[in-house]
């Protein structure tokens, strides 16, 4: 593009410096989490901080799993988080795709009204309905159960929207051809439509899994016993008792982040694509 040979590329030096500074800012706290999870509390708050632990103090991980009260409840909480997040991801994918398919490919009275209504729920922030929702959950005797943790998130309006957008462009000829071949409506959905939704399914699955993995507010309301709690609640309890053990707290943080890091490593394009999808929400 440019012909000059000896020019010092100030612009690119500047860009690289800036980006590396941002890199330090974003990555350092994560490195801090990892290294300090192998340190004693005294090493963590030592000035200056040494980034490499002197000895690998993996005792923190045992403490994290055992808990301050020695109850070993954390593994159970990890299981709860995994179970709830996976279930919500699966139900969201299934219900959102079948609803999106119904709206995108079937003509019936009230179709647009139904779509508009589902879209309207996106304007209702969870934080504004959490208290009535809590009363609904209590009324249905779902407090302190897995049902209570899962049911309010079975499907998301955003998921329905994404599926509907995606399936609107799905060629109807395939559907008609399958009908002629004698496949039932459920069969068409399950064998023809659903397998073709793979890219949206991946994005939606990640978004829903992550939503529950990260959910603090609802489990805070709906669970009471320690054995029904999820990871975010366990962490917040640790923060309360923080002065007891910083290293163990970071070990908990590492364990809590591992599934997300593994998923991100394997499926990063869907994570990043997923945020771009939000952009397409316009219109």
């Amino acid at each position: 593009m440019e012909i000059s040979i000896k020019r010092i590329p100030w612009a690119s030096i500047f860009i690289w410096t800036a980006l590396i500074l941002v890199l330090v800012f974003t990555v350092m706290p994560l490195v801090f989490m990892l290294t300090s999870s192998f340190m004693t509390s005294r090493q963590i708050v030592r000035m200056p901080f040494s980034w490499i632990p002197e000895t690998f103090h993996y005792d923190n991980y045992i403490k994290a799993l055992r808990g301050n009260d020695g109850s070993w409840i954390f593994p159970r909480n990890v299981f709860n988080s995994l179970f709830v997040s996976i279930t919500v991801a699966i139900t969201t994918i299934l219900i959102a795709s079948i609803t999106g398919y119904g709206i995108a490919k079937f003509n019936f009275r009230g179709r647009n009204l139904i779509f508009m209504m589902i879209m309207a729920t996106m304007m209702i922030p969870f934080e504004a309905i959490m208290i009535p929702l809590y009363m609904v959950a209590t009324g249905l005797r779902m407090q302190d159960t897995y049902a209570g943790l899962i049911v309010p998130f079975l499907v998301s309006a955003f998921g329905v929207f994404q599926m509907r957008q995606y399936l609107t462009t799905f060629p109807s000829e395939y559907l008609d051809a399958s009908r002629v071949d004698g496949l039932g409506e459920f069969g068409i959905f399950w064998r023809i439509v659903f397998p073709n939704c793979a890219p949206v399914i991946a994005t939606l699955g990640i978004l829903s899994f992550r939503g529950q993995w990260d959910n603090l507010l609802w489990p805070l309301l709906v669970t009471q016993s320690e054995k029904m709690k999820t990871i975010p609640l366990y962490i917040s309890k640790f923060a309360e008792e923080k002065l007891t053990d910083e290293g163990a707290m970071m070990a908990v943080a590492v364990i809590a982040s591992l599934p997300m890091f593994i998923m991100f490593g394997a499926l990063s394009k869907y994570f990043i694509g997923g945020s771009a999808v939000y952009e397409s929400r316009k219109g």
Binding site: V22, L23, T26, V27, P29, L30, R210, W213, D214, I231, P232, A253, A256, S257, M260, F261, M263, F264, S268, F271, I272, S275
Partner: peptide, 8 residues
């Protein structure tokens, strides 16, 4: 840059 958004 995106990694911090991944953790809860």
């Amino acid at each position: 840059f995106y990694t911090p958004a991944v953790i809860s």
